[in-house]
Design a protein around this nucleic acid. Structure first.
Lengths: 220, 220
DNA sequence: CCCGGTTTGTGAAATCATTCACCGGAGGCG
DNA sequence: CGCCTCCGGTGAATGATTTCACAAACCGGG
């Protein structure tokens, strides 16, 4: 389970690329290929082969010189590294647009993330069916938490409620939070936090498009 | 419009932080504060004050020594830098879960991003009403493009269609693409690309949670 | 068994991003 | 006015990440 070398601090970007490699390997597997070189893995991700090898080297030696990587084996290794061999219990807070979309999309479940409970604060939504779930009142989060716990909490609420909800999730014992509200959340050291900020992505595009006309673009 | 110094290459992280500053400034404005220091701006984002000052310095000198930044003024400046003074015409491709959520969420419109057309390939969805839009067949993308053009295209399709759709959007003349499909897209040099990969974020959490129990966590 | 063509793993170098540390402008107070 | 405190702008130092470049491993063929 910890096959790698000294297990130094792994950068966030490395982990993100591991996810990408994993997806490419699934594709390549479906294409029936048995081996793949770092070079070909890289070109499908638009990065350099050295980057691929370096990323993998943090966790061990999975390739064979002169041959490349065995697709099945590397996929299994990355799967283990990312912790995808087990299933994760996810609590979703916020049954609005994004929350509903996440719930309806079955792809996460396929990867091992089970949304096992849905909460909302709005009385109009509490009690309603949403897919196979019944929306529970947010106050029941801690109550439920004592009986059956969650690994991960998803914050899909309006911006004003986000920090409060995050606190409640931490209270309920989650060890990771995925935040869709466009603001910085503060959580204890031992809780992992990732944020998906779509407004920010739009604004980043807006910036790029605005710049594009002024100064010359980056080199080829 | 280009108030800054030599206008060096601005890093992606700096632009992302500008978005954050912008949001914090809106909050602070609502609280009625007139001035804010880099230190207080930083602590609301969980970063250092030097980072704030450095980020802003790429674009000009907006503060006053001893006083800090004028909230209204700085907000306006960042708004201009991010290109949020104009409105952007957005084409949405994919009327599934994510697409519908994006359409229903009015927040982007408030920031200047108008979804002006919705496309899908699925015959079952084409022709249906979705909010105030009628879903058009994907093949009409290029046709529409000649008449009225789009600035930004949003790819909210299944993974298999994503590259094809991106190509069609480029063909239709968009200058930026926001991709929600969990795969690397290839677009020409002159088209800006941003990707929101929720599966990757979940996997990144899974990694963090898996690591947490093994080796010691990072320092305080 | 040796040679040539591949491809990994990895220190070293280069590049990129963040933080430090200090100068100088700004106001307040006695 | 003189002094003290506050705080932005910025070059220099540090730190993190990516790329380079090459020795060693591996296979196939003669």
């Amino acid at each position: 389970m910890r096959p790698g070398p000294s297990m130094a601090r792994i950068s966030e970007s490395t982990v993100r690329r591991l996810s990408h490699y994993y997806r490419v390997l699934e594709e390549v597997q479906a294409e029936g290929k048995r081996m793949i070189s770092s070079h070909r893995l890289a070109e499908r991700e638009g990065i350099t082969s050295a980057q691929v090898r370096k990323d993998l080297s943090y966790f061990g030696s999975f390739g064979r010189r002169g041959l490349g990587y065995n697709v099945d084996h590397l996929r299994d290794q990355i799967r283990a590294i990312l912790g995808l061999e087990r299933r994760w219990r996810v609590a979703l807070v916020g049954a609005g647009n994004i929350g509903s979309a996440l719930l309806a999309y079955r792809g996460f479940q396929k990867q091992g993330f089970d949304i096992v409970a849905v909460f909302d604060r709005d009385a109009a939504r509490v009690g309603q069916r949403l897919g196979s779930h019944v929306v529970q009142d947010i106050t029941r989060l801690s109550a439920t938490g004592t009986g059956e716990s969650f690994d991960i909490g998803v914050v899909a609420t309006p911006i004003q409620a986000a920090q409060e909800v995050a606190d409640a999730l931490v209270e309920a014992g989650v060890r990771g939070i995925l935040n869709f509200a466009p603001r910085k959340l503060f959580v204890p050291e031992h809780v992992a936090l990732r944020t998906v900020d779509m407004a920010m992505e739009f604004e980043s595009l807006s910036f790029a498009l605005t710049q594009a006309r002024g100064p010359r673009r980056r080199r080829a």
